[in-house]
Nucleic acid binder design. Sequence first.
DNA 1: AATTGTACCTGTCAGC
DNA 2: TGCTGACAGGTACAAT
Length: 279
Amino acid sequence: MPELPEVQTIVNDLRKKIIGRRITGFFSDTPRIFKYAAISKIAKAIKGCKISSVERRGKNILIYLNQKLLVIHPKLTGRLLVAKSEKLNVKKDFIRAIFYLDKNLALAFSDVRKFGKIIFGDREKIEALPDLKNLGPDPLDSLTVDEFTSLISSEKRNIKQVLLDQEVIAGIGNIYSDEALWQARIHPFTPANCLSKNQLTSLYQAIREVLRKSLKARGSSMRDYRDTEGNEGGYMKIRLVYARENLSCFRCKTKIKRTKMGVRSAHFCPRCQKLAIVP
DNA sequence: AATTGTACCTGTCAGC
DNA sequence: TGCTGACAGGTACAAT
């Protein structure tokens, strides 16, 4: 579920709650979510580590433990909860891993569908892994409109697929690609290399506006997303087009359409997001 | 090499 | 009420 705004919300909260805490113990009964290293190894190496900082790369949460690094990717249904240890209910809350902290706190990874991914190891080794190294630039960071244009305009795939490709730009997912394309009045199936300079500029601005707006609302809770307290985000209440099939477009009142794009669905207004005719 | 399809897993909800 | 099928924030990898 989480895309950039949801992951950034988690990261912001974690910074307030767990920086400076020491890891005192570790539990997991779901080996499949750990990539590159086994549970037993992690349990041994992570004990005693102190949390020095928390960062985001794309949709990954990076928890720095001095020379070690813990990376968590929530995929569709992953949640990070910070709570008193005794408040955790492993079965009921689908908790797959617990990092016990000092002061009787715990950082728990909950994940109904077990798609989530956790990586732990030496900082430099983890940072060099393709999981992080292959990610494109962050759309809210220092990405300029010119950089954005050169990344996008060389792609012949359709623009929605390109926006979803984390190696082009990291952090946009199915909700915010639809939201930004609606705002920029671009049809999701437009080949990226057919977009005009003006369209690319609008899209760049739309992406940044939509992501900032959602961040302000603490993200989207379409279904499973929760923040570290277990609270929902508010963006679904102010969304523009995502999950509005058959409702009327906020600009022109035309019925919003939903179309399959592979396994994902794309929502758009067939009137104000006309598919440009390819010459 | 690039693109498309499928697998991973579980809960919820609409329709019959 | 119960069953079946569609669908869900995302990759990761196999097949073409």
